[in-house]
Amino acid sequence: MTNAGSTTTQIRPVPVSASIPSRLAAMVTSVTLRPLTSALPLNARGVWASRQLIAGFMSTLGPPLRGTKVVQVRSGAVRGEWVAAPGVEFGDRAVYYIHGSGYVICSARTHRGLASRLSRATGLPVFLTDYRLAPEHPFPAAADDIEAGYRWLLERGFLASDLVVAGDSAGGHLALDLMIENVRTATPQPAACVMFSPLVDLSFRLSADQERVRPDPMITAQGARELVALYTAGHDAEHTRLTLKLPAGSNLPPILVQAGEVEMLSADARYLQQTVRAAGGSCDLEIWPGQMHVFQALSLLVPEANHAVARAAHFITTSLEQTATLTERRVS
């Protein structure tokens, strides 16, 4: 059995203001990373350079915990890796993690550090899926791979009620798509879902409106739109798996959304909460003061990163325990 932590642990609230290092990090990023991401062309060389740039950024500022166990998975269409922090054992519960970066840039390797810290905080192993990337593999490759990974976990004996889905940025969009597909196919939903800086609106109209209020330190709305277009090119923008409409009464698990105050996707986070609640679901939203996009992954740069992961872990373990209690009551 895995040690999934305890819900009795005292969890600190979201801070009312950003730390000085976080503010400095956003300022430095806005004059370094943002110009670079804007200047790189979206051709083969530009995509390659962007992947190297972000991989270096993530590995330097959010490396895996020392002693983290990594087990590679290649099973048919499913690719990824199990990530377990030191002392975490493999058991009957797990986190299914979906990385982001516009369907184009990141990988399981870039998010191994975040996965290791989420594993430590929850006491659970994390299956970090390594879905196919655009432009080599356009829509719906990523969405199909995410669905295949979830089904693979169920086929390996995990109960849906013992799984939590988590993701960041485009991974949030893919997580929501997975849950909608679960409704459509009558597949059991996970116990909960956690999203860091989720991308919801692929038109980036919400982001552009937010950008007029405050520029995102990492990328422009136009730049992000062009990046995601490498995945969606040639497809109707109103395709149901791109717009992700939630019918009223959709059977969704409880959702926690964390977003940074200074990122443009804070608008998507607010919209997602409104949409889920309008459909009858439960969605908690945390807007972290002064934080930028997926700050949870930058533990060596942003002091609040581990704090946010701890809050997400508390939500995960609480949700799993509540689901287990409900299951026991039904059985008895």
Results as ranks from 00 to 15, higher is better:
109 R>D: 13
79 R>W: 07
98 I>E: 04
100 G>S: 06
78 V>C: 09
111 H>I: 05
91 G>N: 13
111 H>K: 10
97 Y>D: 14
109 R>M: 09
95 V>W: 03
109 R>V: 12
99 H>Q: 06
89 E>W: 08
84 A>Q: 12
96 Y>N: 01
87 G>W: 11
86 P>V: 10
95 V>N: 06
110 T>C: 07
100 G>W: 00
105 I>V: 15
88 V>M: 11
109 R>W: 11
93 R>H: 14
114 L>G: 15
117 R>K: 15
77 A>W: 05
97 Y>R: 12
85 A>S: 08
90 F>D: 12
80 G>K: 00
108 A>Q: 11
79 R>L: 11
96 Y>R: 02
95 V>M: 12
93 R>W: 01
107 S>F: 01
91 G>W: 12
89 E>M: 13
101 S>Y: 14
105 I>Y: 13
95 V>E: 05
108 A>D: 14
88 V>P: 04
111 H>W: 13
84 A>I: 03
80 G>R: 01
98 I>N: 04
84 A>S: 15
104 V>K: 02
84 A>K: 01
104 V>F: 09
82 W>N: 09
85 A>K: 01
78 V>M: 13
109 R>L: 10
106 C>K: 03
114 L>D: 06
115 A>W: 02
100 G>M: 01
78 V>S: 06
107 S>L: 02
77 A>C: 08
112 R>H: 08
80 G>S: 10
93 R>A: 13
77 A>F: 08
82 W>K: 11
94 A>D: 04
109 R>Y: 10
116 S>K: 04
83 V>W: 08
108 A>E: 10
93 R>C: 11
100 G>A: 08
79 R>Y: 09
117 R>N: 09
113 G>M: 00
86 P>H: 08
100 G>C: 05
104 V>H: 04
110 T>M: 11
82 W>S: 06
109 R>E: 13
117 R>F: 03
83 V>T: 09
112 R>W: 04
87 G>L: 11
102 G>T: 08
86 P>R: 08
93 R>P: 00
101 S>E: 14
115 A>C: 15
93 R>I: 00
95 V>Y: 05
103 Y>R: 06
115 A>Y: 02
91 G>V: 10
94 A>Q: 05
81 E>A: 14
107 S>G: 04
103 Y>L: 13
86 P>E: 07
93 R>F: 00
113 G>T: 02
111 H>Q: 12
91 G>H: 12
96 Y>T: 00
94 A>Y: 03
84 A>V: 04
80 G>E: 02
99 H>G: 01
87 G>F: 12
79 R>G: 10
84 A>C: 13
97 Y>H: 15
